[in-house]
Design a binder for these strands. Structure first.
Lengths: 353, 353
DNA sequence: ATGAAAGCGCTAACAT
DNA sequence: ATGTTAGCGCTTTCAT
């Protein structure tokens, strides 16, 4: 099946023919070894020889076969990025952060969408490993122990992003929701709010649990101030926020402020309140979490807690590169502070409220 | 550097060692060929032999090396997806469509973000080709002839998505904006609008040009009805819509309706009008294009022209798979009709307007 | 300063 | 029904 006889090549310049080291070597009257060294600049080659080789390469429009190189070197310059759902506004910026730095370092990125399905995630990671990727970034919120096990089992390099648990045994990055949420509560308290609800995310999501726990912790600090709170369940989608807000509307006493586990939830809630004739922020203040682009578009614009998604993506790639460079490096943890961004959806509690 | 001596393996079961056909073959007392045939089910193997091989594979936790397989077979089961900007709401659904079908067919996807930079696009495509991907889907709106040339030069399989021009020589998919835009104009005309502006996208974008041309064509059909129109320039971002609308606000006569080259532009325009005390749709009707998720969230919800992005992604993968299966297949073109989705941002022209 | 040759892990044509 | 062997295109050790 090998196709290229040089004479044929020059004959049918149009035909598409795969050129390899041997072809170059013959035409340049050197050995394949020298071709390799010219390409990789991995040992001295006489300028004149080098010139000849480069010339032939250009003439034949030589394209190195990275598969072969990878097979020989054991490095693919390829990484895998596992996420749950590219349609979730959480991901695009993270993906961009990863891809950008990857390309800068001549890596290519396999993107795997798990679609919130652990089985699919396991399968994808399996495929990546068989493709001998140099490392994997798992930013799928659904990471569960079966995935960690799979990663540990093979000794592939990997980095975990915003995984619910904190595990010192692996390279990982996470958002410190605590700071941002504490700021949010403090902000609301300073605006005289004393009855604050929280609309949570789906129970199955580790990060959602973390967010909720941090809310509760933050609120409890103000016990002396008579701060009351209540938790409702959402689903991290608009729908869930809407429904939760409708439930709230049916209650006898309305809270004066609501913190939501993510922005979509908050936006859903705002929608419900608008429909119910409750004004945001006049009647009720709302705070989201994520700072997705939407928050600046809705009206009123949404006060929210910022997550630096681009940065966490970029940094996760950085960590992975370090890990690839040196397997023995001590495991690292990188924490990203979150911070409150005040916009229009929060204001001072009305006197009569 | 080869690492696995079976005795050592069994000794240090913990160590991470790469198992290959030879290891399996020895332990199972067969030839590597048979191992290959067991794995690929590519010729008959005695049930008993097969059992032994499979058993050993399981014991050694064998993972096939797809790089080696690819090098031997000339197929990688890998494709490249080139887009401009994953943060652009146009892309996530398309990516999902591609990835989903790819994974179903045991392909993995290299994602390349060109960041609207032709150089970066060329570099990415070059890398993909060197990685011997089986095909490329180019859905980067910035496709220009240098990219086409690069693709044609190597005889890589590729598919073009929503490329501005229509080229019969290559597999391609595009949206037929004409239908949707015609529906939009017809909708506005039936609502008695007779002065319609268009806020376009950036001049450099081929698809933006197409959208504009289609607008003009549609409007011209109503010349008899005294339909006036005007074109303003935007940038396909919120900012551009906002600025264009501000410019409109300064004009003596306001249009009664505006069609925008994309949804973000429309949302920017709505923002500007809201700020300027002009009510949508009471004072002015607005129509977007893309039908991104946002259109249902803003208020008023945005009348827009739907593009089936998930479907075009999925279909492009389908076309690529067909092309990979059969290089000789006649080139295909697939057109996706667009259609108007009426929401709250359009209404009947006020009498006094 | 350059070459020969073995090897990366797999496949597949050609035996037997 | 299974094995032998020669690649795939590249790297790298060891010679010279």
């Amino acid at each position: 099946m090998r196709k290229c006889f040089l004479n044929i090549y020059s004959f049918f310049g149009q035909e598409h023919i795969i050129v390899n080291y041997n072809d170059i070597a013959k035409l340049a009257k050197v050995s394949p070894t020298t071709v390799s060294h010219v390409i990789n600049e991995t040992r001295f080659v006489m300028p004149e020889t080098k010139r000849r080789v480069l010339e032939v390469m250009k003439k034949l429009k030589y394209q190195p076969n990275l598969l072969a190189r990878s097979l020989a070197t054991g490095k693919t310059h390829t990484i895998g990025l596992v996420i749950s759902d590219i349609r979730n506004p959480f991901y695009p910026e993270l993906v961009q952060g990863v891809e950008e730095l990857a390309v800068k370092n001549d890596y290519n990125v396999f993107l795997c969408n798990t679609d919130y399905d652990i089985e699919k995630g396991l399968k994808s990671i399996g495929a990546l490993i068989k493709r001998k990727i140099d490392g994997i970034i798992v930013a799928s919120s659904q990471v569960d122990s079966s995935i960690i096990n799979q990663l540990m089992d093979t000794d592939v390099n990997f980095v975990l992003v915003d995984w619910g648990k904190r595990n010192v045994g692996v390279d990982s990055l996470y958002f410190d929701y605590k700071v941002g949420i504490a700021e949010a509560i403090s902000h609301l308290v300073s605006l005289k709010h004393r009855n604050i609800y929280f609309i949570s995310g789906p129970k199955t999501l580790k990060t959602a649990k973390t967010r909720m726990r941090n809310f509760i912790d933050a609120v409890k600090k103000y016990r002396d101030n008579n701060l009351a709170y209540k938790i409702l369940e959402g689903d991290h989608k608009i729908e869930g926020g809407l429904k939760a807000a409708q439930k709230i509307l049916k209650g006898k006493v309305l809270p004066t402020a609501i913190v939501c586990s993510n922005d979509l939830t908050a936006i859903g809630a705002m929608k419900a309140f608008k429909a119910g004739g409750i004004k945001v922020p006049d009647d009720i203040s709302i705070i989201g979490l994520d700072n997705i682009a939407l928050t600046e578009i809705v009206s009123p614009t949404l006060t929210t807690i910022e997550l630096e998604r681009y940065r966490i993506g970029k940094t996760s790639m950085e960590m992975l590169l370090n890990r690839i460079k040196d397997k023995k490096l001590p495991k690292q943890i990188c924490i990203f502070k979150t911070k409150l961004i005040v916009r229009e959806s929060t204001s001072k509690r009305r006197q009569d409220n």
